[in-house]
Amino acid sequence: MAMLEVEHLTKSFGGLTATNDVTFDVGEGEIVSIIGPNGAGKSTIFNLITGVYRPDAGEIRFEGRSIVGTGTNKIVDLGIARTFQNLRLFTNLTVLQNVLAAQHHALNSTWLSAVLRTPSYRRQEARMREIATEKLAFFGPRLMSFRLNQPVYVLSYANRRRVEMARAMATGAKLLLLDEPSAGMNPSETKEITKIIRRMRDEGGYTVVLVEHKMGLVGEISDRVIVLDYGQKIAEGSYRDVVNDPTVIEAYLGKKAAAAKRGELEDVDEP
């Protein structure tokens, strides 16, 4: 049984169908990329899975259980966490506090015992800090040491992306939805993040679904690629197959250009 099953998912905003009858699944331990031109509905799928939007039709199952209608925060409890395309960190909190806040939902202690700092609360707090450093360590030493206690707003853009990924990992989720993890990163930072995503799966045991525009990254790490266009799934398969699929080339380049090109799909950069 697949970890995540999405069936006939449909969502419209007014007259615009952002997601149109999309079906796919994600097995445990897979890295699946969702690609597609701008406005194809990639982020909308993440928002549907995480309960930000409620689908008009269709079904989403996580580990066999339907999660449609479950609250966003409850979905995190079940084991799905995400990052945002436009960073959404807790800007005035420190790096460490950001990653700790992501573990609050698993805290098993009332506010009163937190105020009184009962032994059980202290133990959990210490454990949370361990997990936080463990997750931040994925990104090498650059978020450690003095960075731990720096407020997020002094960090560079790339570091903020890293903190956001660490924060998603720290929720204790099994499935990570990464929305353009390499946006705003330079080529070597992108290379690094590619490795990290693979390590997240290999060492962290996470299953990863990511939305990306950088084909280099997608080609390197994806077990499977899903292509969306105008809310519809137009192709699915290995990176090789997908980029050579005429419908995909057409979606990216338009009919004429596709006919002219019939070649390799170039890296599509952000607008």
Partner: peptide, 26 residues
């Protein structure tokens, strides 16, 4: 004590960004 506990962090996270706070399970 409340402010510097996990609950305080959750509340500050809500202050910083409600959408993100909820997406982190708060």
């Amino acid at each position: 004590k409340l402010k510097f506990s996990s609950y305080g962090r959750a509340m500050q996270a809500i202050r910083e960004d409600e959408v993100a706070a909820q997406a982190m399970g708060i």
